[in-house]
């Protein structure tokens, strides 16, 4: 197998994830898109680990999974808080960063 087939698949998934993060207005859907991005990184890590026959790639993929789990936990908590405060998780309404 070519290394590039995995890398390009990961790149494509990454870009789809980016598109999702940018275009979705629902907080939950943005989080899902972030998961796509994280997964594409995992594919890269494992592919490079297989290429160099080094276990480090897998280990770091496992770490990424753990980090992703933490990220989802905190992200959902934030979305819930936002829902509780404004009865909506529409990100286009969350513009308090405006100075």
């Amino acid at each position: 197998m070519l290394l590039n087939q995995f890398l390009l698949l990961a790149a494509l998934l990454f870009c789809i994830g980016v598109y999702g993060v940018l275009v979705r207005r629902n907080g939950m859907l943005v989080l899902m898109s972030v998961e796509l991005i994280l997964n594409s990184v995992n594919i890269n890590l494992v592919a490079f680990g297989a290429l160099t026959d080094d276990v480090g790639g897998e280990v770091f993929a496992l770490f990424t999974i753990a980090v992703a789990a933490a990220e989802v936990g905190v992200g959902l908590a934030i979305v819930l808080l936002m829902y509780r405060n404004r009865r909506s998780i529409d990100l286009s309404q969350a513009d308090l960063l405006k100075g």
Partner: peptide, 24 residues
């Protein structure tokens, strides 16, 4: 994670059907 997402959907009472406002 996915189960968590489904819980999140439930807790935020997003509509179960199509919701045209989700896409920006």
């Amino acid at each position: 994670v996915v189960v968590l997402f489904l819980f999140g959907v439930m807790l935020t009472r997003a509509s179960m059907g199509d919701d045209e406002t989700v896409a920006g």
